[in-house]
C-alpha cells in the first residue's frame, strides 16, 4: 500500500501577530508543523506499520517547509517531496490543488491521501476537497477513526465527525481523507529518526516535472490586505460579592442588556 500525507507549516499559535502599515501581516518567522497535520502524519506511519507498503510526505512551498518534511521522515515516513515553482508564489487553493494532484498522479500507485483537518493559520480546508476533485477520487472529510482498510480489495471504512454526530461510511480506494484530533496520539521523533531524516534527499518538483504550465495555477482569489481586530481588552467589569450576590448582579446585567 502507498499512503501519502500532505502537510504545510503554519505560524506558531503563540506568535505575536502585528499588521504592518501596508496591510501585510507579521508573526515573526517561527513556523511549526500545522497541529492538525501531526495527526495526519502519525496516521500515515501507523497505517504503513499495520498494512505494509510505503508512506510519502508531500508539501507545497519554499525552503521553510523542509523542517516539516524532516519531521515526517523522523517519525517513520519513507520519502519526502517538496513541490515548488516561482509560478506558485501567489497560488490560491485551486492552483494548490492542481499542483498537488499532479504530484500524487506522478507518484503513480497511491491508495490513500491524508490531510490534517485544516490549516491552523488560515483555518481553511478548501484545498483538501479540491485536491480530491482534481484527482477525481472519493473524499471522506473529518475522519475520527479508520475502522478498516484493505488496499488489496480497495476499500476503506471510517467514522467521520460532523456537527450532528458520528457517521460510519465505506468507500473505494483510492481516496482522500482529512483527519481530526480524535484519530490518534501524535508520534514524536526519536533521536535515530532525526539523524536519518537529516541525511535524506528531498527532491523538489517544479511545474515542469508535474507536466503543468503556469496557466494551470493562476489564482482565482487574492489576499487584499489585513487589519487588526477591534480591541476588546481592558473592558472587563468585575462583579464582586458573595457567590449569590455575584450571580444576582450578573443576571441583572445580562437581562438589562437583553442578552437573554
Amino acid at each position: 500500500m502507498h499512503v501519502v500525507v500532505v502537510t504545510k507549516s503554519t505560524p506558531d499559535t503563540e506568535a505575536t501577530v502585528t499588521v504592518e502599515a501596508g496591510g501585510n501581516v507579521n508573526w515573526g518567522d517561527k513556523l511549526v508543523v500545522n497541529p492538525w497535520d501531526e495527526y495526519a502524519i502519525t496516521e500515515a506511519v501507523l497505517l504503513k506499520g499495520a498494512h505494509g507498503g510505503q508512506a510519502t510526505i508531500l508539501t507545497l512551498g519554499g525552503e521553510e517547509q523542509q523542517e516539516a518534511l524532516k519531521h515526517g521522515l523522523a517519525i517513520g515516513v519513507d520519502q519526502a517531496i517538496r513541490i515548488w515553482d516561482p509560478a506558485l508564489q501567489n497560488h490560491d487553493s485551486l492552483g494548490y490543488a492542481a499542483a498537488v494532484a499532479a504530484a500524487i498522479r506522478k507518484l503513480g500507485d497511491v491508495d490513500l491521501v491524508i490531510f490534517g483537518k485544516e490549516l491552523s493559520d488560515i483555518a481553511s480546508d478548501q484545498h483538501i476537497f479540491q485536491v480530491a476533485r482534481r484527482l477525481g477520487w472519493n473524499m471522506i472529510g473529518f475522519v475520527s477513526k479508520i475502522e478498516s482498510l484493505d488496499a488489496g480489495a480497495g476499500t476503506i471504512r471510517a467514522q467521520r465527525l460532523t456537527e450532528r454526530g458520528t457517521e460510519t461510511v465505506t468507500s473505494k480506494l483510492p481516496a482522500v481523507i482529512s483527519v481530526v484530533k480524535d484519530i490518534n496520539e501524535p508520534k514524536y521523533p526519536t533521536f535515530i529518526g532525526i539523524r536519518k531524516a537529516a541525511k535524506a534527499e528531498m527532491p523538489v518538483w517544479g511545474l515542469g516535472d508535474l507536466g503543468l504550465d503556469a496557466s494551470a495555477v493562476s489564482p482565482r482569489t487574492q489576499v487584499a490586505g489585513h487589519r487588526e481586530l477591534p480591541k476588546r481588552e481592558g473592558t472587563v467589569e468585575m462583579i464582586e460579592g458573595s457567590p449569590q450576590e455575584q450571580a444576582a448582579r450578573l443576571v441583572e446585567k445580562l437581562l438589562e442588556e437583553k442578552i437573554l
Binding site: 490560491d92 485551486l94 478548501q126 484545498h127 476537497f129 480530491a132 482534481r134 472529510g141 460532523t162 482565482r220
Partner: peptide, 23 residues
C-alpha cells in the same frame, strides 16, 4: 461554512474553476 457546506462548495468550485472565499 459547516462541514458539508465547506466540502460541497469547495468541490463544486474546483469542478467549474471558480474562486472560493471560505468561512
Amino acid at each position: 461554512a459547516s462541514t458539508s457546506g465547506r466540502e460541497v462548495l469547495a468541490g463544486a468550485a474546483a469542478d467549474v474553476n471558480a474562486g472560493l472565499l471560505t468561512d
